[in-house]
Simulated scan of single mutants.
Amino acid sequence: MEKIKVRDSVGATLIHDMTQIIPGVVKGPRFRKGHVIREEDIPVLLSMGKEHIYVWDQKPDLIHENEAAERLAQAVAGSGLILDEPKEGKITLTAAYDGLLYSSEEGILALNTLEGVILSTRHNHYPVKKHDKIAGTRVVPLMIEEKIILEAEETAKAFSSPILEVRPLKPFKVGLIITGSEVFHGRIKDKFGPVLRSKVENWGSTILDLKFSNDDVTMIQNSIHDQLALGAEMILVSGGMSVDPDDVTPTAIKEIGAELVTYGAPVLPGAMFLLAYIGNVPIMGLPGCVMYAKTTAFDLIAPRILTGERLTRRDIVKLGSGGLCLECPVCTYPHCAFGK
């Protein structure tokens, strides 16, 4: 790069975006890369505090910040992401559709340890909507050695999955079983079903069938078999999840021959959550808090299953870091620390 005085720069071509900041009015690129300086631009540049500008002095081992940011974005982007145009040396990645963000914490760390490389993202497993901002890439210097970007590209390739991707939630046919003698015998009105129906439909799935069961192991197991026979791709069994002797839902699920992943999750609310599989069909035992708490372990775990991910006990255990809901008077999830 060659440094020249702004007053002598008419006809020169900018090699980077130049930001103008007027407090309370504007903050953004006033002149874009490639702009040819005109006489009328000189007062504007001086008002921006620019006494000098830099003109292109290409060297074979250096690349411009815009190209570097774009190559970084392309290296980390998997499915479900859209790259915008370079802006002030940055590339923003946005969601192509609604879904769940999957990000490699190890990959993000590996890239950011490279000198001059920046990758900033949302948290792993963040629920996103179409057009939501997901991540940004840039480099610190205006010009960066190409070998660093090549190393970044090779680093990204070393991971078996993309550093960043948005996975859509698949539409599941969900079988719903409401347990509890008080509901089964009609002594109280079921309030669990409407809550679960709303959540399931909000995730793009449908309730295949709704059954009520007494607090009886055999009856619960028969209800599970009925849901499987109907073609349920996911089964939710609500209630009866505590250590009370009358709460037999965990026993019914465990003794039906299901592969138990976990009974208990380090998440509050939702500690008595259960996850098991019969073949490829996930069965979730839902504690009472799911009925009245806005966000619980169920909201952290179910969307991941709906992307097609098969969860392990380790996946559930890792939720302990960030698994404490602050139970704010007005729930703002996912725009909070819960599940992060």
Rank of each mutant, 00 (worst) to 15 (best):
I4E: 03
V6S: 14
I15L: 10
Q20D: 14
Q20A: 13
G24S: 05
R30I: 06
R32T: 05
D41L: 09
L46W: 14
D57E: 15
R71N: 04
A73S: 11
A75K: 03
G78Y: 06
K87M: 13
G89Q: 02
I91T: 04
T94L: 08
T94Q: 08
A95I: 09
L101A: 04
L114F: 13
E115G: 10
L119D: 03
N124I: 05
V128Q: 04
I134V: 14
V139H: 00
E151P: 11
T155E: 05
F159W: 08
S160K: 12
P162T: 12
P168M: 10
G175V: 02
T179A: 09
T179F: 03
G180L: 01
R187E: 13
I188Y: 07
K189H: 08
D190N: 10
P194D: 14
P194I: 10
L196C: 09
N202R: 08
L208W: 09
T218R: 13
I220N: 00
N222V: 07
L228G: 01
M234R: 02
M241D: 02
S242L: 13
D244A: 11
D244N: 14
I256T: 01
L260F: 03
A265H: 01
G285W: 02
C289W: 01
V290R: 00
Y292M: 06
T295M: 07
L300I: 12
G308S: 11
E309G: 00
E309F: 04
R314S: 11
R314M: 09
L319K: 05
G320T: 04
C325W: 04
L326H: 14
L326G: 00
H335F: 15
H335W: 15
C336A: 13
